[in-house]
């Protein structure tokens, strides 16, 4: 064990100080440009209305204020449907959608990657190829299907098509290929473990980085869902739609609009940071693989 540690130490020494410095500098320069829109959106939301239209334009606020957020929350009181209803819709769709997508995609990905049933390759090829078809295709036919199935104006119309999206499955399958060692599954099978149990207690923990990534991206998609052609009842509409309605009045609501964008963005950002931190933590614990 002691020997191994010296080797481990040597691996770390494979990093030159110059290389570390170059990487840090490059990331810092690129990162500056990458983070600009995020900073700009937050900065806009903190500007009083008078500062939004000054010339020459300024990036950062002179006198930061929370008045836009106050106005946003004030305006929320006057929505036709109680604002809490919009929040409930978004939270419900997001939670159901994220977990539905994760469960279906992971189960199917595990089956394709680790169970040798005839036809698995064909299924995978079809799913992978479907990713390459532009999103625009078949939209009118999906609409007809949803209408004929009497799913119009229900949560199902938003949930069902997205839950079985090919991206999540493809992601999970790729990680099942690299991270899950078949030998461990075989020995569990020899011990008589049921396949669902192996999936849940052996395979899923090994692909934790993948499902955290999937939760994150899927969450973002559902959370930021705006109006949809499938929904026409006001009671079923989302928070993103509702804030859009409040802020699409014109120049006078520009500050509120910026506050609304920040308000919607904040939850995905928290989810992002939490899951990214967990992805990085797993590295320490997944060192022992064989």
């Amino acid at each position: 064990m002691k020997k191994l540690r010296t080797r481990n130490h040597k691996v770390v020494l494979n990093r030159s100080k110059g290389g570390d410095g170059a990487i840090t500098v490059m990331l810092a320069i690129m990162g500056f440009f990458m983070v600009l829109p995020l900073v700009y959106t937050i900065s806009q939301s903190l500007k009083p209305l008078t500062e939004l239209f000054i010339f020459p334009p300024r990036f950062l606020p002179i006198k930061p204020t929370l008045v836009n957020f106050k106005n946003l929350f004030y305006l929320m009181n006057f929505s036709w449907v109680p604002f809490s209803r919009y929040i409930f819709n978004t939270v419900f769709i997001t939670v159901a959608g994220v977990f539905g997508n994760l469960l279906l995609a992971s189960l199917a990905a595990y089956a394709i990657a680790k169970i040798e049933f005839p036809g698995r390759n064909f299924c995978f090829q079809v799913i992978q190829k479907s990713l390459m078809i532009g999103a625009a295709i078949g939209g009118e036919i999906t609409y007809i299907i949803i209408a004929k199935a009497h799913l119009m104006d229900t949560y199902w119309a938003l949930l069902l098509p997205a839950i079985a999206g090919p991206t999540g499955l493809y992601l999970m399958k790729q990680f099942m290929d690299t991270n899950v060692t078949t030998a461990i599954l075989e020995s569990a099978r020899l011990d008589g473990a049921k396949e669902f149990r192996i999936f849940w207690s052996i395979a899923m923990p090994m692909v934790k980085p993948a499902w955290l990534t999937l939760i994150m991206t899927s969450f973002q998609g559902y959370w930021q869902m705006g109006s949809s052609t499938y929904i026409y009842s006001e009671q079923l509409k989302t928070i993103n739609y509702a804030i859009g309605q409040i802020t699409s009045v014109g120049v006078t609501r520009q500050g509120v609009a910026a506050a609304g964008t920040v308000f919607i963005m904040i939850v995905p950002i928290i989810i992002f940071i939490v899951s990214q931190s967990n992805i990085i933590e797993t590295m320490g614990s997944s060192g022992m693989k064989d």
């Binding site: 698995r120 079809v126 479907s130 079985a164 669902f196």
Partner: peptide
């Protein structure tokens, strides 16, 4: 093989069913 690995079909069924209806059929 199909018989031995039938659990695979059960696991993939929920995804494939929705995928078939909402992606394959429209395409």
């Amino acid at each position: 093989q199909m018989n031995v690995n039938k659990i695979g079909y059960i696991m993939i069924a929920p995804f494939m069913l929705l995928f078939l209806v909402f992606t394959i059929v429209p395409v």
